[in-house]
Amino acid sequence: MKELIKLVFVMTLVSLISGVLLAVTHVYTQEPIRQTEQRQLFDTLRQVLPPGEGDPVPLVFTNAAGQVTTFYVTRRNGALAGVAFACVSAHGYGGPVEALLGLDATGTLRGLEIVRMNETPGLGSKIGAPAFRAQFTGKPLEGSVWKVRKDGGPIDAIAGATISSRALCDAVSQGLARYQEYKSAIAAAAAAAPARETP
């Protein structure tokens, strides 16, 4: 009995110390991590968007179902120059695949960057390689078929990673659906709102 109490006491103490240490680390690193993520987001936005004036401006929309979508718009000479937005597919091999799409004023997919994925390193993770992503860019978002060759589309899947390749196609298709939903609203908001400072 005495031994049992000692064992429970030691285990509790070890877990308690660990818990406190983790809580303290979390509190102190929360803000720097948030800032780093924000900075990385804007760096990625600049990669996918055509050059514009100032930082990209976020436009937040909520639809009837309560889904929140954020579009980042950039302007040049008073006109809409590009739109960027995140799209997610839940059908990745190791979890969701999230990509950032950038469109120019004509609706052509100008840039595609993977922002979050957990695909197998060396296999599925190759969907982030420039050679694979080049199959997506330069095409109009609307009117192109976003499917791998096995599913009757034009995209060559990565050998051994069809599920990951399919997931990226799925993410782009989801992005297309979301973009069509708000296309007119983005144009209206971008025309009305003057370029403002980003937070």
Binding site: L21, L22, T25, H26, Y28, T29, P32, I33, T36
Partner: peptide, 11 residues
């Protein structure tokens, strides 16, 4: 491991 992960992400 978790502490190292958080500190690396932050700094």
């Amino acid at each position: 491991v978790t502490m190292v992960d958080l500190l690396m992400k932050a700094y």
